[in-house]
Design a protein around this nucleic acid. Sequence first.
DNA 1: CCCAAATGTTCCGCTATGCGAAACATTAAT
DNA 2: ATTAATGTTTCGCATAGCGGAACATTTGGG
Lengths: 270, 270
Amino acid sequence: MAHNYTDNDIQQFGQDAVTKDRLFVMALARGLELLRCFSPGERYLGVTELSRRTGIPKPSTSRLAGTLVKLGYLNLSPSLGKYSLGPGVLSLGYAMLSNIDIRRIARPAMQELAEYSQASVSIGVCDRLSMVYVETVRSTAPIGTRRGVGSRLPLALTAIGRAYLAGLPESERDFLMNRLSLHHERDWAQLRAGIEQGLRDYAERGFCISISEWERDVSAVAVPFVDVDDRLMALSCGGAAFLLTRDKLENDIGPRLVSLVQHISGVGRI
Amino acid sequence: MAHNYTDNDIQQFGQDAVTKDRLFVMALARGLELLRCFSPGERYLGVTELSRRTGIPKPSTSRLAGTLVKLGYLNLSPSLGKYSLGPGVLSLGYAMLSNIDIRRIARPAMQELAEYSQASVSIGVCDRLSMVYVETVRSTAPIGTRRGVGSRLPLALTAIGRAYLAGLPESERDFLMNRLSLHHERDWAQLRAGIEQGLRDYAERGFCISISEWERDVSAVAVPFVDVDDRLMALSCGGAAFLLTRDKLENDIGPRLVSLVQHISGVGRI
DNA sequence: CCCAAATGTTCCGCTATGCGAAACATTAAT
DNA sequence: ATTAATGTTTCGCATAGCGGAACATTTGGG
């Protein structure tokens, strides 16, 4: 099973090595790359900014963005003269979510664990070099993380990302880790150590842990699993670091996560 | 302000009349059209099905779908040999939602009204010929509609759609209604009557109503408004028809919606 | 087991298509 | 007025993407 591409330099997609891939449609990839520029923090982007971020020349950016506006995936704010994401992207996400059966199946048990642990319980899948939440339930406690369905988390630093990597067959994990190393050159040694610790954790106890490694004051534990449709996912429980101590994660929540996964998948580990 | 296109026949986008629009990137439009084929009911689609639905010849469909897989927007199920939506589409939706400030602003008051009315309160925007929920809160009552953020509702039959139309400047409304009439040829006379009733309702009382017109046993009332970022939206309250009687919608919930909108936008009507 | 039917992929010549440098608008700032 | 910055449009060119046809691959039926 070939893993999909992971980098964000679109130019290289079509021109892998020498084979100018005639089966790859650049115009489509470039247009989607424009949409990817937007994020919770990046609300309005003009042609120049989009052009700079994607490396696509201005005229092409203008044409592609114009096309996306006509299709409803981008809005052009008349006052600012800048683009923002349009409603078109929303219903795609909705269609995707409602086809993930595991959400319905797992939600009650997830809610229960969230209440018990006074934290957030989430299911995530991998997209490029991030994990993306497809379901998340919060305890009814006063405050909790505001990360909802669709938010992205780094593979290397989070419990959920490490669990996913741990659940992957070795060849695919190597492929991904290679990508990661290219992307993080800077502090790869450190990240790699964290991932490898995750592999050991998983082998020994069945779950991976991250203690304040990604965000200060947030800790989590996670377990990989294969859902009813044969997709690899990971289930995590995370929240305030002062609540979720290492001891609690290792001896209480972690084992509960493992049995939750056995409960919802009937399969347990891969 | 030119309204974006609304039809789902992609071919005509590029070739409007005589002007072969060189500013429109067909390959991008066609690729996105493939994604649109998937919906909550349509989970797995093969090349032939995609090809038939979109009118794109099979080889092109194959190439475009392959590209989307490489980019993470589609999965190719190895067992079925069919495509399904990939995680890529999710984070786009998340990025869009988190940039809609009105959600944060309105949520508490919406929740309050949902509890009071024992129904669902939602905010929707228009995409092509549908309204799309960008926020929705349910009462904590035992059952409620399962339509979440991102789900689509028809413009003509729903309270939220009629409210949106009522809030539109006349020129844009006419444009949209023209599109609607083409799309619904069949029963346009009836739909038109419903919309025009909505316009009158809005003029007289400030809200639009739909009583069991879209789904049996579901009734709703809705109000258009302009959000903090100058986008036209609509706020609706809908639920079980036996609870939300005409009297209650007209004399209780409707007025409450109007004041809710005044409260959150400070602007009220357009 | 073979043949037929159906689906998905690849080939390959052709040309419409999308590309991007440069020119042209439109604004904003000084 | 002048400069700078951003967005749009033009237009000739190269090629990216197109799609008919051929080629695989799978399924199912007799």
